[in-house]
Structures are given as C-alpha cells and as structure tokens.
Design a protein around this nucleic acid. Sequence first.
DNA 1: CTGTATCCGTGCCGATACTG
DNA 2: CAGTATCGGCACGGATACAG
Lengths: 110, 110
Amino acid sequence: MAAAFAAIGGKWKLTLLYWLGHGESHFAGLRRRSAPITPKVLAEQLRELEADGLVERVATGPVPAPVIYRLTPYGSTVLPVVEGVRVWGEEHLRRSPAAGTPMSCVNAIA
Amino acid sequence: MAAAFAAIGGKWKLTLLYWLGHGESHFAGLRRRSAPITPKVLAEQLRELEADGLVERVATGPVPAPVIYRLTPYGSTVLPVVEGVRVWGEEHLRRSPAAGTPMSCVNAIA
DNA sequence: CTGTATCCGTGCCGATACTG
DNA sequence: CAGTATCGGCACGGATACAG
C-alpha cells in the first residue's frame, strides 16, 4: 500500500502515467496535456518516475532535439491500476460533482 | 483522476479503506491496525471519507461505547481499486525492496 | 473509548527567472 | 526545446495534551 503510494502518489504522477499510457511523449507535450503543471514539478515527477523504473527518457539526438519519455515495460503494469482509479474517479464525479472544484489539489482533469 | 485522488489520496485513506473492507471496526481498532497514525489524523481522514460518502459512523450506544465505522455500499465500490493498488504495491516492493524504507511518508504496511 | 485542541515542522508544490 | 535555479507558501500531517 505504502510502497505503491510512494511510487504513484505524487500529485501529477497518475496523470502523467495516464498520458504516457496513450503513447510516448516529449517534455512540452506532457506539459501541455498536464497543464497547469510547471516545468520544475514536471521534471521532478518525471525523475521520480524514472527512479522507480516506470518511465524512461530517451534522447533523440543532439540538442536541441525533443527528449522522448515513454513507459517502461514495467511501467505498463501500472496502467490497469491507473485506469481503475480513473474510472472510479469518473463515477465519483457523477455522484458528487462538487468533488471537482473545492479541493485545493485538484487542477488536472485527466 | 483528480477527483479520485481527492477522495482516496490521503496518506492513510487507502489503508483505512483496506481494513474497513475486511470488516467494520471501531476507532481504536483502526488506530491499532494503521499504526502509527495519530488520533487526530485518524479522525480527520475518517471524517473526510465520511464526507465523501465512502464510510459511515454508527454509534452503538451511549458513551463510553465503541463507535463502529463501516464502508457504505458506495464505499465498497472502491475496494477493487484499493486491491489493485495493493497488489501492484507488493509487486513493486518485490522489484525494488528499497521502496519500503527511504520514503518519508511510508510507515504503514498494509 | 472516542475523540478535540493546540502548536509546529516540512514535504510538496508553485511562480518566476534563467541556461545549454 | 528541455530543463535548472531560487525563493516562497501553505496545506497536510504529526506530537502532545486534554476532554466527554
């Protein structure tokens, strides 16, 4: 429980994993899709995901060239979990629409 | 995503839901099983879970009498999600045993 | 036994600005 | 484009003590 939470418990990690589950992406792409995340936080969360072996960075050439982020095979194993959370979250929204707004830590709509 | 995180993203909520999924329990029982949670935080998290309709309090008599907490029918719908997270967390522990110790927010072993 | 009150530390996140 | 640097805030969680 706690271990899982440590790996995917960041504010944006589920969102990032969700988008990466839809295909690899570069920094700016993730930033756009996960707005309004700041570059600093995005870099932090990506580095943590990378440290946990869920995500890998692949450089595509000499700078300036987009750096691609993609799920590792291991990272793909969380997708069902992420999807489960997402689906339940939608149900929860339908049940109590207020859930989307009043929270402080709720900005991303994945 | 964000809505789900708001509902179950507290530090102890997954753990509490897990235990409650194993049967209703009283305050002290939850406190013991979720050690080292403090009474203040336990009360907070339970109240939030209650506000989200996942958990209900039932008084069993005049004080001093144990107050029972149990999942609502709606609360039961998160159990699959919780279980998914838990199972993945175990896998993750096996893969990187370090995940259990270095994190700051990792005390509960559910 | 079931909580509440008070105080406090800090982890997490954010804004802004800057660099290769 | 892909980040890093610096600074700051504040909500969240925690310790301890007390109360019905």
